[in-house]
Design a protein around this nucleic acid. Structure first.
Lengths: 221, 221
DNA sequence: ATTATCTATAGATCTATAGATAATGC
DNA sequence: ATTATCTATAGATCTATAGATAATGC
């Protein structure tokens, strides 16, 4: 019977990886609660490992939380890649990624809260939505599709800020229709990038793949 | 000789107000450093008051920091009001407020860092830029000037997120021309709200009042 | 034999208060 | 006489490590 956790060489390494993952997962639950000061003992209890074990893996709480944020962004990035794998048009790739990210605040509230409590680090991170949006913006500029963009960093700034602020809005207004709010903002952003009004609306009205299928297993690689 | 700090009744009250202000100011310096965990003793040392005094004014560090963020936003809001007092057009009021806020990241880096480290609280706060932008958006909708806006909360979401993300960008890229970056984003946002391209550009090219005059005294009421 | 993990704990750090002091009110 | 502030400190809490234990490697 094959082991689940990674394909690393021996059992000792796999156990170590599992312990590390448990610590990261525990950190994410505290992050989701906005409790950035949780005592290390509480974190290790949540991870169900001994206190001393923490220091085998991390030097400080700050370091653990940093890794935990990166890991969450990474997982989200992988999900976006999976879902947009078939698409060619940068405008559509961007639109789908943004629309799905907005919906995620309802479908996966834990990840959502981790992102909201991670402050602005998502904006400059090499993981997650930001680098993908950057790639799509540059592709769209080259193809002439995003004619209104002169500086991709500035476009990315408005987009990244919108992702965060949208998350906050949906968190503050639990009864608001997340899909509708997200799609409207996506439309605004597409127009801002240079798409004609009608086309922006059309792209945001297209059907989306079923997210729940992808979210079935929480531990998606 | 009249006292400076407020016009409150007696000297005891004024001294108390000064102590409280010193604590808030000290909290803001730690906030600017991103040190949300500074021991209360260090905060009181920075404020140059005894440790016990802290508990005469606040119940917890969290409460102090909350007040410190509100105070910073409040001061910024008052500055914006002062500067835009003469203007009538909601589009121009909004544009000036946004353009000045962007420039503030260079002119007043301490306030800038306080805002960036305050997380997303600026987005939903009743103080600072957000309520003013909300007011301007609704005025612009009524006058038909912001024809593209259907839901003011969504417009405010993109705008608020952009404020924060712009601050982060300018912080990460110290050599970038803040005025230029800010004006371009303002232009994008005005177009998003429904202004014609040419008019958005024109409004963002107008001269701004001299901010340094207003920033002369840091303790502007 | 090696390596990860565990438990127990010394020492550092921090919070919150008690009681003393200093300043102002009346 | 009242009120804000101060200093000193008890007790709580937390970090980081030392040394023991358990599991795997070879």
């Amino acid at each position: 019977m094959p082991e689940r956790t990674g394909g690393t060489a021996n059992r000792t390494e796999r156990r170590k990886a599992r312990t590390r993952a448990a610590l990261i997962r525990a950190a994410q639950t505290f992050l989701a609660e906005g409790n950035l000061n949780a005592p290390i003992l509480e974190i290790t209890r949540t991870a169900d490992v001994g206190l001393g074990t923490f220091y085998n893996h991390f030097d400080s709480r700050e370091q653990l939380f940093e890794v935990a944020i990166e890991e969450a962004l990474d997982r989200h990035g992988a999900l976006l890649d999976e879902i947009t794998a078939e698409l060619q048009d940068p405008a559509e790739i961007f639109a789908q990624a943004f629309r799905l990210t907005g919906r995620l605040h309802r479908l996966h509230p834990d990840l959502s809260k981790v992102l909201l409590n991670s402050g602005l680090s998502l904006l400059a991170s090499e993981k997650g939505l930001a680098p993908r949006a950057h790639r799509d913006i540059e592709a769209g500029m080259r193809s002439g599709r995003f004619g209104a963009v002169r500086d991709p960093d500035l476009a990315l700034t408005v987009i990244g800020g919108s992702v965060l602020a949208l998350g906050r809005l949906l968190h503050d207004q639990p009864e608001r229709d997340a899909a509708d709010a997200t799609d409207r903002i996506t439309e605004d952003l597409l127009r801002m990038l240079g798409l004609p009004t009608a086309e922006a609306a059309e792209i945001c009205a297209r059907p989306l793949p079923d997210l729940t299928a992808f979210l079935g297993d929480d531990k998606a690689a």
